[in-house]
Design a protein around this nucleic acid. Structure first.
Lengths: 197, 197
DNA sequence: TTCTTGATTGACTGATCAATCAATAAAAAC
DNA sequence: GTTTTTATTGATTGATCAGTCAATCAAGAA
C-alpha cells in the first residue's frame, strides 16, 4: 500500500481530523492518538509528519485561518459598493462553515492556547488585524477615518462576543440575527455620523 | 499548629491560590499540586477539602461569580437614574478587579471548560442572563422593550468581545476606551430610537 | 490523663500520554 | 535484482498527575 507522495494527503487528513476532534471536544485537551485514530492512521504517523502535537495544532490553526481568508476574499470580490463590502465581511464571519459549533469551539480553544503559545497569539493577531483593517477600509469610504476606526473596533468586538455566546448556546442568537445585530450597529453609527448610505 | 475550624480558611486560601495560578497560566491546565503549593499547603489537603480538582475549579468559578455579583450590586445601589444604571453595569465589567488580565484569562478558560462541564456551562449562563436582564431592565425605562432587548444583547456581546481582545493584548483597548465604546453604542442606539437621555 | 476528632502530610498507585525507535513493507531508482 | 527511499506501525519509555491512604500531630473533651 505505501505509495510515494503520501505526505500532503496525510497531513491534510490529520488536520481535518484535528479540527473535527478539537471541535467535538471543544478543547485542545485531545490526545494525538484520538486525532490519529479519527484520521485512520497510527499516532506515530502524526508525530512523523508534524514533529509533535504543538506543531499539529499550529498547522490546524493556520489551515482554519487560511480558509477564513479565502472565504473573505471570495466574498469581497463580488462586493462592489462599500456598503456591500461591509455586509460581506460581516456575513463571512457568520457563514455556515465559520459559525459551525465545532469551528467556533475550536477558535475558542485557540484563544485560550494563545495565553501560553507565542505563535498561537501571533496567528490570532494576524486574523484580528486583517478583520479590523478590512472593515476600517470599507467604512472609511462612507465616513471619516476616525469614525470608521471606531465602528470597525466596535463591530469586531461584537462579532467576537457573538462567537463566545454561540459557543455557550445561551439561547444564543442564530447566524441571521447575529448578522442583523452587527449590521444594525454599523448602519446606526453611520447614520448618526451623517453618512449617506 | 493544627487548630480547629481551619476548613473555611483553607478553602478560601485554596480558591485564591487557584485564581492566581489559573490566571497566570491563562488555562485550567494547572496541577492541583501547583495550586496547593501557591496556597502553601500540600496537594493532599486540596483533595481533602474539595474532593477533587473539578470541584475546586467549580468553587473558584462560584467565588468569582459571587464577587462580580457583589460589585454589580454595589454599583447599582448608588445609581439612581436609568442612564446611571446602564453606565454602572458597563463600568463594573471593566473595573480594575474584573478586567485584570489574570481575571480575564481565567474567565476565558472557564468558557472553554464549559464545553465539557455541564455545571460550568450552567454557571456561565447564570452570569450571562443576569447581565442581560440588568441591562435590559435599565434600558427599558428609556426606550421600548424591543429596542431595550436589542441594545442589551448588542452591548453584552460587545463587552464579551472586548474581554477576548483584552486577553489577547492586541494593542487591546484599555478599560477607559472599552467603556467609551460600549457607552457610545448604547447612547447612539438610544438617540436613534428617539429616547430622551 | 486518656480519648477523640480535625488538620495535615509524605509516600504511593494507577492511569494517561507525548514522544521515540526499531522493524516491516512496498515502491522507485539503479 | 539489489539498493535506496518513503510510508507506516507496534511496542515501549519516561514523565506527569489526580487521587488514595495510612500515619502524625495537636487541640479540646471526658
Amino acid at each position: 500500500m505505501p505509495k510515494v507522495g503520501m505526505e500532503p494527503l496525510r497531513k491534510r487528513e490529520l488536520i481535518d481530523a484535528a479540527i473535527r476532534t478539537i471541535g467535538q471536544r471543544g478543547s485542545l485537551d485531545v490526545t494525538v492518538a484520538e486525532i490519529a485514530h479519527e484520521a485512520g492512521v497510527s499516532p506515530a504517523l502524526a508525530h512523523h509528519y508534524f514533529g509533535g502535537k504543538e506543531q499539529l495544532i499550529l498547522a490546524t490553526m493556520r489551515h482554519l485561518l487560511k480558509e477564513l481568508g479565502r472565504d473573505l476574499l471570495t466574498a469581497l470580490e463580488t462586493a462592489r459598493t462599500p456598503t456591500a463590502r461591509v455586509a460581506a465581511i460581516i456575513a463571512v464571519n457568520f457563514s455556515a462553515s465559520q459559525f459551525a459549533p465545532q469551528t467556533v469551539a475550536a477558535w475558542l480553544a485557540f484563544y485560550v492556547h494563545a495565553q501560553q503559545s507565542d505563535e498561537t497569539r501571533r496567528l490570532l493577531r494576524v486574523y484580528a488585524r486583517r478583520m479590523h483593517s478590512n472593515l476600517a477600509y470599507a467604512l472609511s469610504r462612507m465616513t471619516s477615518r476616525a469614525i470608521a476606526l471606531q465602528i470597525a473596533e466596535g463591530a469586531a468586538a461584537m462579532i467576537d462576543g457573538l462567537y463566545i455566546r454561540h459557543a455557550l448556546r445561551n439561547g444564543a442568537p442564530e447566524a441571521a440575527s447575529a448578522i442583523a445585530l452587527v449590521e444594525d450597529y454599523v448602519t446606526t453609527k453611520l447614520t448618526a455620523a451623517g453618512a449617506s448610505l
